[in-house]
Simulated scan of single mutants.
Amino acid sequence: MIEASLQAGQLLTLLIIAVALGMDAFSLGIGIGLRGIAVFDILKMSALIALFHILMPLMGMFTGQYVSTLLGGVATTVAGGLLLLLGAHMIYSSLRGDAVQSINHRTIWGMLLFALSVSIDSFSVGISLGMFAADVAITVLLFGFFGGVMSILGLLLGRRVGTSLGEYGEACGGVILFTFGILFIL
């Protein structure tokens, strides 16, 4: 009886962490969706984000306690810096128009950059969970599922709102990413 309640408590904790980590993907999705994105690109990017939300905590869980003390805050700061740069670049390119080439989220490098920026904090969470001997399979599957689903929801919401914002959509998306970058760093 006690072990069943401990397992239920661990599952609930993992669900809450998965949703919290998925919120980064959701907010990024809104920012990118505001620029306009095709449905096929939504599926590709969400699948890549889900994959990164599986791989990053998996690597973190196997890295262990030593690295946790070194990289715990650094991973969040790096993720915040990436979001700051992406957001600033989106704002700048929307204001400058065609004179500046923005980061293309349709390319593999653009998708990798966006997926990394929202899943790097999963690495440090994975390190922490590795110290507590969390079930690896359940953990990474939950993280991947919620990262993918929440990125789809954010991309679709941003796409819908972006059509009504027109040319200001990219600037609004950049402001969202920039704001989340500041919040990560603080």
Rank of each mutant, 00 (worst) to 15 (best):
M131W: 07
V140E: 03
D135H: 09
D135S: 09
F146V: 00
A134E: 02
G130V: 00
G148M: 08
F132V: 07
M150A: 08
S128Y: 00
T163F: 13
L165F: 14
L129P: 00
F146P: 00
G162S: 09
G158T: 09
V136N: 05
T139A: 06
L142Y: 01
L129G: 00
M150L: 15
I138H: 10
F143D: 02
I138D: 05
G148R: 03
L153N: 08
G130I: 01
R159C: 11
G158M: 10
M131I: 12
G162V: 08
M131F: 07
D135W: 03
S128K: 08
G148I: 01
M131K: 08
I152Q: 09
M131Y: 07
V136S: 03
M131P: 00
G166I: 05
F145T: 03
V136L: 13
F132K: 07
G144C: 07
G166K: 10
A134M: 10
V161R: 13
I138M: 11
G147P: 00
G144I: 04
L142A: 00
A137F: 11
V140G: 02
R159K: 14
S164T: 15
R160M: 14
F145H: 01
L155T: 08
T163K: 15
G166W: 04
F132M: 09
S151Y: 07
L153Y: 10
L165M: 15
L165A: 14
F132N: 02
F146E: 02
T163V: 14
A134Y: 13
T139H: 02
M131T: 12
R159E: 14
D135A: 03
F145S: 03
G144T: 09
L156I: 12
L141R: 08
S151F: 08
L153A: 15
L142R: 01
G158C: 13
V149A: 14
R160L: 15
L129D: 01
V161H: 12
L156D: 07
G158S: 12
